[in-house]
Write a protein that binds this DNA or RNA. Structure first.
Length: 621
RNA sequence: CGAGGUGUAGCGCAGUUUGGUAGCGCGCUUGGUUCGGGACCAAGAGGCCCCGGGUUCAAGUCCCGGCACCUCGACCA
């Protein structure tokens, strides 16, 4: 590659005419020779079926564009075939991730996609994963699954070869197809049932070592997403089914994101909605003054008024005056959660507060049993059964409150916590929303939607203890390996990039992940001269290390322009009669749409410099 | 799993109410004219109307049962 480009650039100094540049391109065997040429990427021969119309199944831009630009086709719900163009982008993203993993000392390997059930049973996840896991049996009746993730396999693989602290730490990763039988696949590859993921696992001697690995991955993720051109925020998150103690999500801010996030512009706090802590609520007034505040509670008839909205209309009060009583069943035991009427219970927080494994909203029959009233009239006073009552701190500040009366068609008004009712425990159990105070600095939080493209977990010994991954430390003491798990959704990144980089005409690939850097576009392929110039430019660019395709199709110029914009080649070189009359071609940048007329003899170097400068924008690290 | 919707040519859709020869636009093929932002003329090809059963002289259309896909919800990386 290098010698070629040197030869060519020397020669370019001498080139003055169209014929000259054509001859330069023909230094290698003619691409139009009898045998044709496989080295020239000709659109006429490539498999990139673009769609003029929007497939009706696609709702969001990335899904529509991945289908329209010929990147993929659906095989079934949530499962896609990646066509050449789409697969090239996937490999670009993979390669960026691979390089950043390697930079941090990661070692790539490949686990099987198909896994035995027994290791999953040992960690309890054979049950925990539930219907989301694709399960199958072999002909011998052995239970297997298609890996939704690989913690178990990674753990036993390292375990079997690790005896001593001298063998730690280890960072291994793979780029694998994962299988998850999503309840509802949607948005193309954004939430698919089969998708490509990079997953890394760290194995350390102790928490300090794990912290080092974790930080390495944090850094690797920053670099990788920066190189893809993605803009993200890092949030504190819940750990879900993977479990563990501490974790962060890398979220690309996007209206189509499935996760709600809140963040503070003042202090940098950021968390998923389900994880975000509520700001501390100051203690309510002291007991004596409360005692002095005589109760004004009275029961009133509220026929068929069950919901907060109904109550607002019926009583003309603010939802902030109401106290919702929600009955849950925690590990089989009913509990009541009290929360202000304008708030929602965060079930993850409630589960943590109660320390229970399972938690679900109580069925209507249970509610009737507990409250003695139909659904919609539950309240903390006079519950039929003595169950645990847990209140959100905000409830303590409700004055002249409204609660259900635990009787059909009745509510109690004028109540106050500490005067008319109490709870066994007071804990933050509410979902934090935009506008709430930042738990760290008190500034109102901003809200956004986010696409989760990466997740970092500290796993502790969750897997190593259950799968016996131990080692001997310096003192000869046997200890469990401390693990971490780190995922990047490769295919989801591709969708996220498109969400961030598109316009009405199509995709606008950042140079680093574009399927090809440049498209050379002869406007009229029946014009011998245009075609020759285009072919020459194509081979010139290839010699300069530029990834370039030639749109040699016998199509109208409009069709070619539309396809080029749709597919999103960052640079477009238009070869038309108008320009050639002045020995020039037009070089256009998809991003921003600027175009420049460039002389034939300098076109190739101009374009390759443009490609390089665009690449540099993304790798200023 | 709950609620709703849609399955008709490669894509987007009409036709189903009121049963009677399978339609439109784009795309595709051939010929011609065109050629700087999804051209024009002419001639064509292409359909198990999702599948199975039923009613009827006759079913894309009506009835029953499946399946697939999409949307909202619950759930989840």
């Amino acid at each position: 590659m290098k010698p070629w480009s040197r030869q060519c650039s020397k020669r370019q100094a001498r080139i003055r005419s169209i014929d000259a540049i054509i001859s330069c391109g023909h230094e290698s065997p003619s691409p139009t020779g009898v045998l044709g040429s496989w080295s020239v990427l000709r659109m006429s021969q490539m498999f990139m079926p673009t769609l003029r119309e929007v497939p009706s199944e696609a709702e969001i831009p990335s899904h529509q564009l991945m289908l329209r630009a010929g990147m993929m086709r659906k095989a079934m719900s949530g499962v896609y075939s990646y066509l050449p163009l789409g697969y090239r982008v996937i490999r670009k993203v993979e390669q960026i991730v691979r390089e950043e993993m390697d930079r941090q000392g990661g070692q790539e390997l490949l686990f099987p996609a198909i896994q035995p059930a027994d290791i999953w049973k040992l960690t309890g996840r054979w049950e925990d994963y539930g219907g989301e896991m694709f399960r199958l049996k072999d002909r011998g009746g052995r239970e297997l699954c298609l890996g939704p993730t690989h913690e178990e396999l990674a753990t036993i693989t390292l375990r079997d070869e690790t005896r001593s602290y001298r063998q730690l730490p280890k960072l291994v990763y793979q780029i694998q197809t994962k299988f998850r039988d999503e309840i509802r696949p949607r948005f193309g590859v954004m939430r698919a049932r089969e998708f490509i993921m990079k997953d890394m696992y760290s194995f350390d001697r102790d928490d300090e070592g794990c912290e080092v690995s974790y930080r390495k991955m944090y850094e690797a993720y920053r670099r990788a997403f920066d190189r893809m051109g993605l803009h993200y925020i890092v949030v504190e998150a819940e750990s879900g089914a993977i479990g563990g103690t501490h974790n962060h999500e890398f979220m690309v801010v996007s209206d189509v994101g499935e996760a709600g996030i809140v963040f503070c512009e003042a202090c940098g706090y950021a968390a998923s909605e389900e994880r975000a802590d509520a700001a501390a609520v100051p203690e309510p007034e002291s007991a004596p003054s409360l005692a002095a505040d005589r109760s004004h509670a009275r029961t009133i008839a509220t026929p068929d008024v069950r919901t907060i909205d109904d109550l607002i209309g019926f009583l003309g009060v603010s939802p902030r005056q109401m106290v919702k009583t929600m009955v849950f069943v925690a590990d089989g035991e009913p509990v009541a959660a009290l929360i202000r009427g304008d708030r929602d219970v965060n079930e993850v927080k409630l589960r943590r507060a109660l320390g229970c494994a399972s938690l679900e909203l109580a069925a209507p029959e249970v509610i009737e049993e507990v409250t003695g009233a139909p659904v919609g009239f539950a309240g903390p006073i006079g519950l039929k059964q003595a169950i645990t009552i847990i209140a959100d701190p905000e409830v303590l500040h409700v004055v002249d409150g409204v609660i259900g009366a635990n009787a059909a068609d009745a509510h109690i008004v004028g109540v106050r916590y500490g005067v008319d009712f109490t709870a066994h425990r007071v804990e933050d159990i509410r979902i934090v929303v935009a506008g709430d105070e930042c738990p760290r600095c008190g500034t109102p939080l901003k809200g956004a939607r986010g696409i989760e493209v990466g997740h970092l977990f500290k796993l502790g010994t969750k897997y190593s203890s259950r799968l016996d991954a131990r080692y001997l430390d310096e003192a000869g003491q046997e200890r469990s390996v401390i693990m971490g798990s780190y995922g990047i959704g490769i295919t989801r990144c591709v969708a996220a990039i498109i969400e961030e980089y598109h316009d009405a005409d199509g995709i606008i690939w950042p140079m680093s992940v574009a399927p090809y850097h440049v498209i050379v576009l002869p406007l009229n392929t029946t014009d011998e001269q245009q075609l020759k110039v285009a072919e020459s430019l194509h081979s010139e660019l290839e010699k300069l290390g530029v990834e370039v395709v030639l749109d040699d199709r016998d199509e109208r110029p409009g069709v070619k322009f539309k396809d080029a914009d749709l597919i999103g080649f960052p640079v477009k070189v238009t070869v038309g009669a108008r320009g050639l009359a002045q020995c020039r071609v037009e070089v256009g940048l998809r991003r921003g749409g600027q175009t420049t007329m460039v002389g034939l003899d300098e076109a190739a170097t101009y374009v390759s410099e443009l490609v390089r400068s665009e690449l540099a924008l993304l790798s200023k690290l």
